[in-house]
Design a protein around this nucleic acid. Structure first.
Lengths: 205, 205
DNA sequence: AAAAAAGATTGAATGAATTCATTTTTTAAG
DNA sequence: CTTAAAAAATGAATTCATTCAATCTTTTTT
């Protein structure tokens, strides 16, 4: 049986995570004070810092949850992709984008991105970077799969192409998060247009 | 003749800028306290805030200087580009990258990027975003120029291709700034490889 | 040249994240 | 079951960016 200490630890950790993500949604990241998170989780401020290195860490824990779900949804598309290059890309990227606002607001995304850039050595930045890498790999894998199906030309460097496509969709997502007025549809349309030249050129004729 | 007040203002502004950029280089952005900047510039903390809205704003001046110079160097290459697509891209992007660490450390770049993402409505972010847009346009313009020279196929969407190339080189630069161990040569080699498929495919055969 | 108005400077006060020495709780040993 | 050691929790103190009411300096007006 698990020791009391371990159970309490897990319980507190969950309470902190729940309290924080609820507060972030209610009042936004910046206005949520550690003191308030601690109060809601029924712990002290100091205890918060025993569980998370800093305020940003707890946000990135939420982001992890989000991205894991997206990766899992993406796997289904990669395993059985639409028959055209543009169709497959639109499906995978559409999945990513549609899912993105499920747990996180634009403000929360912006903050998570900012932290992961500014403190690249923190554990959660490493985690965030790793999630990005897995998304990037998933796009490359899609291209590989399309090669295997004969939809993409055999001599295409799938990894290089995947990286370029991912970096583009990623930058565009950052721009989306920065502009409060930009809609998901705008985003998808613009990325789709940007993808078209490369998608057309790597397709078997 | 300029009034005393205007002269004093310009003088103080320069002293603040010099003090701040010197301190940022010496101890890093995070460790440079406003109080220290003020002391070195021989002004009070309050006065600092009469000249700059916040700590991040003072990075803007440095970043602007940097990017303006890069844009101007890039113009020379766009006006008279190497004869191959890969050659032209490597030249332009190499120019961008080589110049990047002239005034700014990786840490300063990370901070600037983080601020521009986190506070998209601030003057800083708007300026930074505008500089990014001009860089992006420059890449598109290069592709246009290569079309005009008959090096790139006539039916290529130069804007879409330029955007994709820029977003890729931009994301890769962010990664470069995040990894203290990554060298400029690594960066250039990786981007060059990523560019190759698209570069090859849009070239006239 | 004196007085009034406008413009700037100042640093103490504020507010929020983070630290750390102390206290409390849990586990392991005898 | 007691007690020593280890692990965790605690919140008051610290640090630092930012604000603002009071003061000082320059310019304009009379």
């Amino acid at each position: 049986m698990t020791g009391l200490r371990a159970r309490q630890k897990a319980d507190r950790n969950r309470r902190i995570l729940d309290a924080a993500s609820a507060l972030f949604r209610e009042v936004g990241y910046d206005s949520a004070r550690i003191e308030d998170i601690a109060e809601r989780a029924e712990i002290s401020v100091g205890t918060f810092y025993n569980y998370y290195e800093n305020k940003g860490d707890i946000l990135l824990a939420t982001v992890s949850m989000e991205v894991e779900e997206v990766l899992s949804a993406g796997r289904a598309i990669v395993d059985n992709p639409p028959a055209s290059v543009m169709g497959a890309l639109d499906a995978l990227i559409g999945e990513y984008y549609d899912h993105s606002l499920y747990y996180l607001s634009k403000e929360m995304w912006r903050t998570a991105m900012a932290i992961s850039i500014q403190q690249p050595e923190s554990p959660f930045s490493k985690r965030y970077t790793e999630l990005d890498r897995r998304l990037c790999d998933q796009v490359s894998t899609l291209i590989l799969k399309l090669k295997a199906k004969g939809v993409v030309a055999i001599d295409v460097d799938a990894e290089a192409v995947g990286e370029m496509l991912f970096h583009n969709l990623n930058t565009m997502f950052t721009e989306f998060a920065k502009r409060e007025t930009m809609s998901l549809d705008d985003l998808k349309a613009r990325v789709s247009r940007q993808n078209r030249p490369l998608a057309t050129l790597i397709a078997t004729r």
